[in-house]
Amino acid sequence: MASSMRVRALLKGDVTAITAIVSHPMETGMRKDGGKVIPAHFIQVLTVDVDGKRVVTSHLNTAVSSNPVFNFKVKGAKVGDKAVVSWVDNLGEKGSGEAVVAAG
């Protein structure tokens, strides 16, 4: 299943704010559809790399909202650095998105 995501990276002062919005159902596995349980389908790992270095590793559970939004902050990034956000879910589906750090 294709999933789209948006990444934004804005540098203000010496702190870069990174926002990632992922299109994902984040199904808990506890909801029912006509008596049938909808299987769990949720992002388990989401990582952020800036300029090729891992800055954040997130491990997530079903309690993260559907179409989740994440905000992180990183010191030391420069305008023009590449910020890459990647995820993998419990069914092995993967996605990633990137943004170039811009002056905020």
């Binding site: 800055v55 590793t57 993260v64």
Partner: peptide, 18 residues
């Protein structure tokens, strides 16, 4: 959720939860 920080990431995170 659990978030680990390295290489200049600040211990500052915002998410939306159920």
């Amino acid at each position: 959720g659990s978030f680990e920080f390295a290489n200049g990431a600040l211990p500052d995170v915002a998410v939306r939860l159920k």
